[in-house]
Computed example of a mutant assay.
Amino acid sequence: MGGTSSGRRTGARDRDGEGRARNARPRDGLGRPLPYGADGVERQPEGVVRTPEQSVAEAQELLDAGKPFHAHEVFEDAWKSGPEEERTLWRGLAQLAVGLTHAARGNVTGGARLLRRGAAAVEEWAAGTGPARPYGMDLAGLAGWARGLAEDVERGAGPVDAEARAPRLRGGG
């Protein structure tokens, strides 16, 4: 089997440059795997350490481009590399992005569940640990956006347009 730019294929498993299992199949804009050799959307590099402001700006660009799966990867990096006291915040933001991803893929149950879980996490963080507007983000507005989208999805809105329904992290939900 042929190699790819993001890893190599050995036996039945894709491996990264250090031999760790890593799916090297190309992905579409919503993170769904495509056949080997297909043109896909460039993947977000994993394990990137960014400032919180860089994480918010990069995630917003990806959300605005209709790539919530890729925004989730940015939030996941912040969750894993940031200070312990901010992990609930970044994990909640990652859940919001994954919830939008599932809603855009037409997964009603998973989308609504993750949107609500992410809304609860960012609210919990704001109520217990930190400010309501960390790094300029409007957490109350994001929670309201997520719950409203979850309701729309459950009412049968069908797959949502991820770009059209992208949240504004710094206000305007």
Rank of each mutant, 00 (worst) to 15 (best):
D77S: 07
E18W: 11
A120V: 11
Q44S: 11
E84F: 08
G110N: 05
G31H: 03
E46Y: 07
F69N: 06
L100N: 05
E84V: 13
R13L: 14
A21K: 11
G29L: 10
P35N: 08
H72Y: 06
H72S: 12
A132M: 06
V41Q: 09
R25K: 11
L139Y: 05
P52K: 05
L30A: 07
T88W: 04
A120K: 13
Q60A: 10
A119N: 09
S55A: 15
G40A: 06
L34D: 06
W90K: 06
G40I: 11
P52N: 06
D28K: 02
M137T: 14
E53Q: 12
Y135A: 14
L114R: 09
R105K: 13
A103Y: 04
E53C: 00
G130A: 06
L89R: 09
E58A: 12
L114A: 01
E86M: 04
G106C: 12
A126L: 04
R87Q: 15
L149Q: 06
A104D: 07
A78P: 05
G37F: 01
A59N: 02
A24P: 03
R25I: 02
A120T: 13
L34N: 08
L96F: 10
P131D: 13
P35A: 15
P45N: 01
E85T: 13
D152C: 08
N23E: 12
R27D: 00
R13W: 14
V108I: 12
L62N: 01
H102D: 07
P26C: 08
G106I: 10
H70K: 05
G82P: 10
A119F: 03
F75A: 12
R113L: 06
A103N: 03
E18F: 09
T109A: 13
P52C: 01
E154H: 02
G106T: 12
G118S: 08
G66F: 08
R50M: 07
L139A: 02
G66T: 04
D14L: 01
V122K: 01
W145P: 07
V56L: 08
R20K: 10
L115Q: 07
A112C: 02
G106W: 11
L139Q: 04
E86Y: 07
N23F: 00
A146F: 09
R117A: 14
R91M: 14
R13M: 13
H70Q: 11
R43Y: 00
R87E: 15
T88C: 07
V153A: 03
A120I: 01
V153S: 05
D64W: 00
E53V: 07
E84G: 07
W125F: 15
L115F: 04
E61A: 13
N23T: 04
E46K: 11
